[in-house]
């Protein structure tokens, strides 16, 4: 019998189910990702994309199945700051009285002492992260005064400052300007070369073809999973989107 070395997988989700008060949001979902892989998570609204993210971060508990992060439990991944989550712009309160610097510093909280006093290394990590997303001139700007793209970059900087090896990105390209889109795609290439594992949900089929090595099509459960070139076919997409053809969804070119 072949033995699987789970250490090889950054993310290993096996037959996971999530239900909210008896309502099934996700069932029998599987996903395996290795270091340096970028995987697109594609599905309709309500197909369980956010639920999948929530299960991987431990924000909701799974009712069945098993999740291993670097071969360990989700709880130890939380302790080790292994996973960073970059929320959708709609998922956060943009009027919260907080500056770019403070948001990015939150990426370091997990490794600080109980008072969350930044050390020299934390300050440096935050500085570097903010520079990488090109927001150096907005250090003390309240997030309410930023554009959608700048806000997205702020949260990316938080993930960078966290030094996580797994990045979960919820709709990283929605509501951002061209400049931010270009910067995010450059960062993706850098992350890949650094050996980070990326799982991103998106509505944009062009982005899937452009960035993703793998694609996971879901509709409450996995419809198809594999190499983008093999799995991302019109038939599979049609099944994922409940019988609607990709021509109708994304125009004839796709």
């Amino acid at each position: 019998m072949e033995t699987i070395n789970y250490q090889n997988f950054r993310i290993d989700a096996e037959n996971i189910c999530v239900d909210y008060n008896g309502k099934v949001a996700l069932y029998d979902a599987n996903l395996r990702l290795k270091p340096g892989q970028i995987c697109g998570l594609v599905g309709m609204n309500g197909a369980g994309k956010t639920t999948f993210f929530n299960a991987l971060t431990g924000f909701v508990s799974i009712s069945k199945g098993k999740i291993r992060i670097n071969g360990e439990s989700v709880r130890s991944a939380q302790k080790d700051q292994t996973i960073a989550y970059v929320p959708q712009n709609e998922g956060i309160d943009s009027q919260f009285p907080i500056s770019v610097w403070d948001v990015v510093m939150m990426g370091r909280y997990g490794s600080m002492n109980i008072f969350r006093c930044p050390r020299e290394s934390d300050v440096q990590a935050v500085k570097d992260a903010i520079e990488r997303v090109d927001l150096a001139e907005h250090l003390s700007t309240p997030i309410g005064n930023l554009s959608g793209g700048q806000r997205k970059r702020t949260f990316l900087a938080r993930a960078i400052a966290q030094r996580a090896s797994i990045l979960l990105l919820d709709e990283p390209f929605s509501g951002v300007d061209i400049r931010t889109e270009k910067l995010i795609s450059e960062l993706f290439i850098q992350f890949k070369n650094e050996g980070k594992t990326i799982l991103l949900s998106t509505h944009d089929m062009i982005h899937v073809r452009e960035f993703c090595d793998l694609v996971l099509l879901i509709n409450k459960t996995v419809v198809a999973y594999g190499e983008t070139s093999e799995v991302f076919t019109p038939e599979n997409i049609t099944t994922t989107f409940g019988g609607i053809s990709p021509d109708f969804l994304f125009g004839p070119e796709s």
């Binding site: 080790d80 989550y85 929320p87 956060i92 997990g110 938080r158 966290q162």
Partner: peptide, 12 residues
Amino acid sequence: CFDPRHAKTVGI
């Protein structure tokens, strides 16, 4: 208050 999901993700 700001982002409970991030808090949970980093083990708080």
